[in-house]
Structure formats: structure tokens, C-alpha cells
């Protein structure tokens, strides 16, 4: 069941220059939905539309079953958000920020301690936020988003500017939140982070979703995109021999062959050996999310399931 769905969403800042061009997406309940796209693809614009910070020109947003929630914002009680850098008042401490959030979200201040402990800021709760590191600021932003126990968490580039440890901490926290039953929409342009974290994936290109699916769909795509890198004593001859049966891409060091299954590998090796070629190296190259991303950014084929 989708907790958030978007249908045919259009948005432009300037007339004639659309940013979102009929975007469709579905975020299933209790998923970590990776929202991937290169810079300028429209990720932040989509998220700002979802949160009612921007008004869509056309299309439909359904949040917790309510259509066009920006007209009646009551369902945003179940949403927590962190958009890029968190909104922090430099003179206020973590504790002050959460006191503020308690008033805005109408929750008891008893919630402050557990949420600060969860993000690891309890020890630093009285320090002014201007003295925090980037990672601490991001964690405080997360604490503010989590304070009222939202069912849906919308995070736009939450690992921006973080060091590897900070990125890992945020990733662990996101996984923990999903285990606790929350749904997370995670926007990022960091492919490896998305790949390590998400259960579902949507890839945005030029304001449209060009791929949407779960991990199984991603694995299926990967299985279909196997490549064999091969190096022999005569690359030109090997190229001529294999071109008729396989799609071959030649580089300085390797010939890359597009395979349909792993069982193609021994067939290729036997053929080359039979033709008297010496094989120095043959290795399987599995396509990763980066491969998918690059491919989708080359062509506009919809791989959605």
C-alpha cells in the first residue's frame, strides 16, 4: 500500500521551463524509498511540492489517502522532514530547538530526551547549534524531524557535507527507523549510499521518473546487465571472432562483452582457446546502481515494473 503517491505532477518556476514533467511515484508503507537523480533533475523541487512549500501547476499528490494535502495540512502531522541543511537558529541549543519543535508539533517535552539520545546528541544538548559540526547539525535536524514520531520521514540529501563516519551513522539510523515501522523517502545523488540503504528506488531524470522498483527489480536488472571483461594475446582477432555473437566494446586493455547469462562465459573461453588465442584475464563485471543510473541518463527507456 502506498503511503505517498504522486500522479502526473507538473511544476515550473518560470513559464515555459518545466522542472517536473508529469512525475509519477509511489512510496510503499514501511519502505526506504531512494529518490535518485543528478543535480538539477528536480529532486528538491519534487520534495518541496510534496511538503506544500511549492504549489504544483497540475497533477495529484496523495498523502495518507488524502488528495492534495497542501489544501488541508492536517495529514502533515504524520510527516517529518529534513530538507537539505537543517533550519537551525544559531543561538539556540539542541534542547531549545526541540522545545520549539514540541510547541509546533504539540507533543510533550518528555519526548526530547529519547530523541536526542537516538541521534547521539544528548551530551551536547546545551551547546549552541552554531558550535556544532556539520554532522551534528544534520543529526539535530533529524531529531527535530523525528520528535513527533512521524509515520513518514522525508529526507532531502541528509548526508550532504558529511564525512564517511557521519554518512554511515545517518545510514544506520535510517535503517533503524525503517525497522521501527517508519516509511522513509530519501533523496540523494550519492549512488552508493542509496544502494546500501534503500528497499525501493525511483530514478528521476529531467523531471520524470525513469525507473521505479524494489530491490528485487534492481537485482533483476543487474542480472540482465552482466559484462565480461576479457584480455587476450590478440585483442583485434578476439574482437572479430566475438562480434558476430555478442555486443562488444573495445578499450585499450579489455574487450567488454554484453552477456545474457553467466553460462555464456565458458562458451566464450572455449571458442577463443579453440581459435588458438591465449587468455590472460577474464572477469565478470556486475552492473551496479551506478550502471543503471548512467544507462538511464543515456537513454530514456522506462524500466519500471
Amino acid at each position: 500500500m502506498s503511503i505517498l503517491s504522486v500522479s502526473n505532477l507538473h511544476f515550473s518556476y518560470t513559464k515555459g521551463q518545466p522542472i517536473l514533467k508529469g512525475l509519477n511515484l509511489n512510496v510503499p508503507e514501511n519502505s526506504i524509498y531512494g529518490f535518485l537523480g543528478s543535480n538539477g533533475a528536480g529532486k528538491s523541487t519534487t520534495i518541496r511540492n510534496l511538503l506544500g512549500l511549492l504549489t504544483p501547476q497540475s497533477g495529484e499528490i496523495t498523502l495518507f489517502g488524502k488528495t492534495n494535502p497542501h489544501k488541508d495540512r492536517s495529514c502533515y502531522r504524520q510527516v517529518g522532514s529534513l530538507i537539505e541543511a537543517p533550519s537551525l537558529y544559531p543561538n539556540l541549543s539542541a534542547h531549545d530547538h526541540l522545545r520549539l519543535a514540541c510547541r509546533y508539533q504539540q507533543v510533550s517535552s518528555d519526548q526530547i530526551m529519547p530523541v536526542l539520545q537516538k541521534v547521539g546528541l544528548w551530551q551536547h544538548r546545551h551547546k549552541a547549534s552554531k558550535k556544532y559540526s556539520t554532522g551534528m547539525k544534520q543529526r539535530l535536524g533529524l531529531a527535530i524531524a523525528l520528535l513527533h514520531e512521524p509515520k513518514l520521514l522525508i529526507l532531502d540529501e541528509p548526508t550532504n557535507g558529511l564525512d564517511p563516519q557521519g554518512i554511515s551513522d545517518i545510514r544506520d539510523l535510517i535503517k533503524l527507523l525503517c525497522e521501527e515501522g517508519k516509511t522513509i523517502l530519501l533523496s540523494s545523488h550519492l549512488l552508493t549510499e542509496i544502494e546500501k540503504t534503500v528497499t525501493h528506488l525511483g530514478i528521476l531524470k529531467d523531471g520524470q521518473l525513469v525507473f521505479e522498483g524494489n530491490q528485487a527489480a534492481l537485482e533483476e536488472w543487474k542480472a540482465k546487465h552482466l559484462k565480461l571483461a576479457i584480455r587476450t594475446n590478440d585483442q583485434d582477432r578476439a574482437n572479430v571472432l566475438l562480434t558476430s555473437a555478442y555486443q562488444v566494446q573495445s578499450t585499450k586493455d579489455y574487450l567488454y562483452l554484453q552477456l545474457s547469462t553467466e553460462s555464456d562465459i565458458p562458451v566464450i573461453v572455449r571458442q577463443l582457446v579453440t581459435e588458438g588465442l591465449d587468455i590472460y584475464e577474464a572477469k565478470l563485471v556486475r552492473s551496479d546502481l551506478e550502471g543503471l543510473f548512467m544507462e538511464l541518463n543515456k537513454d530514456n527507456t522506462n524500466h519500471g515494473q
Binding site: L51, G52, S74, R77, Y89
Partner: peptide
């Protein structure tokens, strides 16, 4: 105070 904290995106995303 709000401009410096870039707080509008937080405040206006609230249910209120």
C-alpha cells in the same frame, strides 16, 4: 531570525 536560520522551509512544512 527566521531568514538567518533558513527556517521558512521548516515552519511552512508544518501542519499549521
Amino acid at each position: 531570525i527566521e531568514q538567518r536560520a533558513d527556517a521558512w522551509k521548516y515552519l511552512y512544512a508544518l501542519p499549521s
